[in-house]
């Protein structure tokens, strides 16, 4: 134990935070543009599946397919919410269910015995997750696209009055959001598990969304949130690996079943503590 245990915990935290941070950047993009995006969960699963399947042939194909699929499904979410005026939660939920069902079915059809890929180095994803938040801060604050994206997310009608159409920034934002989240998914299948299992996103999209709220819709804050939640994933894993036991009040608190809940319980606690203090982009809370 001792130092080795601590190092393992730190490393594990970083790698657990990686997919959360990547997906959270997607969340920031979409939500700052005023589109609620609970489809992050589905996009992660999509990225995991597509990355694995196409990655079986070549890694490059896998990555390309992940980006394209993420953009396409992002486009779909943008189309449903913007053009078809669907409630973004309904659209997101629909996409999540669709992707969960489709990937489970396709996985059973295409590789019923499971399969294994060499994939990519996790460090690649980690680097991306470390750089992306800063890139996003710059984009949001210092570029025309970022300014318009924020304007549209705060008040589409005011933006329209200023002579810009809310459509383009929103479509772009939601598509990029899809790309970010599916890259997060690619990390899971291509760099972490080296295989695909159905529902392997396991709620990470929702936790990423929590990180966005935790970070007050700021890319760096959201990355911080991802680290925070990543820590509890790591802690839970480390406790299980080390077979640490805590029996209190007749409950085996370190049972794997309870430990599995830890990150999610912390998510809930963290959100409760920021609720009321976080100000979302104004257009998010508006019913259209």
């Amino acid at each position: 134990m001792g130092n080795g245990w601590l190092m393992a915990l730190v490393t594990s935290t970083l790698f657990n935070a990686t997919p959360l941070a990547l997906a959270a950047m997607g969340g920031v993009l979409s939500e700052r543009a005023g589109v609620v995006n609970i489809a992050l969960e589905g996009f992660i699963l999509l990225g995991a599946f597509v990355g694995f399947y196409f990655g079986l042939h070549s890694v490059f194909m896998g990555v390309l397919a992940v980006v394209v699929a993420g953009a396409l499904f992002g486009l779909l979410h943008a189309f449903f919410t913007q053009k078809a005026r669907m409630n973004p939660v309904v659209s997101g939920l629909g996409l999540n269910l669709l992707i969960a069902g489709a990937t489970r079915y396709l996985a059973l059809r295409l590789f019923p015995q499971g399969d294994h890929i060499a994939g990519l180095s996790p460090n690649l994803f980690l680097s991306l997750a470390a750089v992306l938040p800063f890139l996003l801060v710059f984009t949001l604050q210092q570029t025309k696209f970022g300014l318009r994206l924020r304007a549209v997310g705060e008040n589409p009608e005011s933006a329209r009055m200023a002579g810009i159409s809310p459509t383009l920034p929103r479509y772009m934002a939601v598509m990029l959001s899809g790309v970010c989240a599916s890259i997060a998914g690619a990390y899971l299948s291509m760099a972490d598990a080296h295989t695909f299992t159905s529902d392997m996103s396991a709620g990470k999209g929702y936790v990423a969304l929590a990180a966005v709220i935790f970070g007050k819709w700021n890319p760096l804050g959201a990355a911080g949130g991802a680290l925070f939640f990543g820590f509890f994933y790591a802690l839970q894993t480390q406790l299980q690996i080390n077979q640490y036991h805590l029996n209190w009040l007749g409950v085996e608190w370190t049972s794997p079943f309870l430990l599995d809940c830890l990150p999610y319980a912390m998510t809930l606690l963290a959100l409760v503590s920021v609720i009321g203090r976080a100000t979302p982009p104004a257009a998010l809370s508006q019913e259209e």
């Binding site: 300014l147 924020r150 304007a151 705060e154 008040n155 009608e157 005011s158 009055m161 982009p281 104004a282």
Partner: peptide, 9 residues
């Protein structure tokens, strides 16, 4: 009258 400046910008 209503859609003036964007407050958060």
């Amino acid at each position: 009258q209503h859609y003036a400046l964007i407050p958060a910008l």
